[in-house]
Design a protein around this nucleic acid. Sequence first.
DNA 1: TCTGGGGTCCTAGGACCC
DNA 2: TCTGGGGTCCTAGGACCC
Length: 403
Amino acid sequence: MKRIILHVDVNNAFLSWTALLLLKEGYKEDIRKLDAIIGGDEDKRRGVVLAKSTSAKKKGVVTGETLYNARKKCPNLQTFSPNYHFYQEMSNKLFTYLSSFTPDIEQFSIDECFLDYTHIKHLYGDELKFAYKIKDEIKEKLGFTVNVGIGNNKLCAKMASDFEKPDRVHTLYEEEIKTKMWLLAIEDLYGVGRKTAPKLRKIGINTIGDLANFDLSKISSIFKKQGLEMWRFSNGKDDSPVIPNETDNKCISNSTTLAKNILNRNEAYPVIMALAENVGLSLRQQKKYAYVIAIQIRDKYFHNYSHQKKLDNPTNLTSDIYNVAIKLFNDTWDEEPIRLIGLRLDKLTAVNPYQISLFEEVEEKEMDTSLQETIDILKNKYGSKIIRNAVTKESAIKKKYQK
DNA sequence: TCTGGGGTCCTAGGACCC
DNA sequence: TCTGGGGTCCTAGGACCC
C-alpha cells in the first residue's frame, strides 16, 4: 500500500512569528509586508540573516549571509531581533493543533513536521482537502501561514512543500516526480548542499533529473553513501518512516561566539563554566548521562578544531563536565585568539551504570549529586541566574562577553 | 561593517586485538 | 631476518539540515 505523507512547513517562520509578536505589542506595521529580516546582533558578532520576508528574498537576500551584505542588496532593509522563547510558544501551538488529528507526527524542527496520513485517511477523507483545511485553520486560529506538501514518502512531501510559497498546498506523488521534480536545479534537492552541488555540476549534473538518470555506480564511487542516498532522493525514493515524538537527542551542545576574542586561559574558564552549566542542566532535565565530553574552538581565522574525551563512567554533573572540559581546552588550545567556544556532550545514555571507579570517593560523588540536585531545583524555581558558580560570577561573563 | 547555533550522520586514520 | 588482514573502538573533521 502506498503511504500518504504530509509535510507542514511554516512560511518564513521566525519572521512571521516576530510579525505576530510585534502586532500584539502594538507595532503598526506587519513586517511580513516590508523588506525585513530577523538578524543577530552585529555588536556581538552574530550579524547574520536568520529569516527574511518575501520581498527581501526577491531582492536577493539569503539566509545565513551577513547583515552588511544583505543591506547592500536591499538598502531599506529593516532588521529585527529573534525571540526564541516566543518562537517555541508558537511552535508548541502548531504541534498541539496538528496532534489533535493523529499521533503519527514527527517534529522535524521548530517550524516543520511530517504527518503520516495513511492510517487516518478513512477518518478525514481526501488528503488534498485535508491539507487545505489544516492550512486554512492554522492561518485563521494561529495567525501565520504554512505550506503543506503531500507525497508518498517524507522526501517527496518535503520537496513538495518547498515548491511555491507562501500559503500553498502542493503534491508530489510518485507519478509526478518526473514532471515536477526532475526539472529543478540540483541545488534544490534535499541533501545536496553548497559543497556537493558544484561537484555535481562539474560532472554535468545540473538538474535533479540529471542525477536521477546518472549511472549509480559512478555516483556511489565518488560520493560513497551520500551518493547512494542523493541518487535515491533524486528518483523520489525514501523508505524512512514517520517517527512520532522523537525527543531522544543523540547529543547536547552549547556554543557561543564571543563579543570579543579571548586571548588567555583565564578569560576562557568562565565561558566554559557557563557552557558546562547549560549543557549539564539540559542533560539532567532529559534524565541522561554523557560518556563523551568535547570542546570546540573557533579561532579568529575561522579555523575550527575540537578535542573530545570518552569517560569510563558517564556523568551528569556540571562539575565533572567543567573539569574535563578545562583539561581538554588546555590540551588543545593553540593560543590563537578565540572567536567561539563550544561544549558538546555525546554518547548519551539513559541509565547510569553507576560504576564508581575503584579510586573514586563514593561519598564525595553522592554529595556532588545531591548538591547538584539542590542547585537545579533552585534554578528551576527562581531562574537560572539565581546561582552562579563562583568562577562565572567573578568574571561577570554575561556583561563582559555577551553584551 | 564579513561569516549564528543546535543538531545528525559519515569518513578517515590510528590504536589495538586476535 | 620484517610486516597480513579482519574487526572494533576512538577521535577529529566535515557536510548537511533548519
